[in-house]
Amino acid sequence: MTQSKISVKNLNMYYGDFHALKNVNLEVEANQVTALIGPSGCGKSTFLRVLNRMNDLIEGVKVEGSVLLDGCDIYRPEEDVVNLRKRIGMVFQRPNPFPMSVYDNIAYGPRIHGIKDKRKLDEIVEKSLRAAVIWDEVQDRLYKSAIGLSGGQQQRICIARLLAVEPEVLLMDEPTSALDPLATMKIEELIQALKKEYTIIIVTHNMQQAARVSDVTAFFLTGDLLEYGKTDTIFTKPTDKRTEDYITGRFG
């Protein structure tokens, strides 16, 4: 059996007294798209933030259990969190480009990690923008502010910005919920293209989206991981009645 990219074992998480994630076990395979679905407040976004320790920034959060990335626990005390976030990056619900030029947005990460050579940076910027399928739209305005772009373009800039630091895992927290259908379609196509090189975990409220883009789907309910398996199976023959009710729109 090959080793999973990410392996979550007996994970419990608390916000103060609130038990947000209850004994979650999940294996995420490399080069697959895993969709996390479930009603609001079920813990799917929280779970996503556990995976690159973004919850560290919030006071009163306690995590138990283990999260293995390539077999190595990211919650062990000597883990370098800064380096971890370089390996596992996140795309947020609302596009959040820096108030800088398109070029500086993409070059931000590489510069942070010590690349100064202008030609190398140019190369990375172009490659990342091409990979995020936004190059054609912005190549003439690389030195203008990224804030002037449309929401969908901004989101692809944010994805390009992430690709520029060459992460291994992309976490996407409802990346299309603030976008129109056309922009959503572009992002979904992009996700399909990116999974060849990256492991992708996406939180979504949109059932069709989960069905369209993911290989594996995990269904969360009030902090429990109720069911997970191949997306086809989950959507056609769910074993749990509650999964079926949610997917068919009976609640959520």
């Binding site: 976030r85 990056g89 800088m100 942070i112």
Partner: peptide, 24 residues
């Protein structure tokens, strides 16, 4: 959200303050 974006690219706290927070 800008802070989070910076941290997510593997920037540390100081780099985030210097390059994102202070300019904004």
């Amino acid at each position: 959200s800008l802070r989070e974006a910076s941290l997510n690219l593997g920037a540390n706290h100081w780099q985030t303050i210097l390059r994102v927070v202070l300019p904004s």
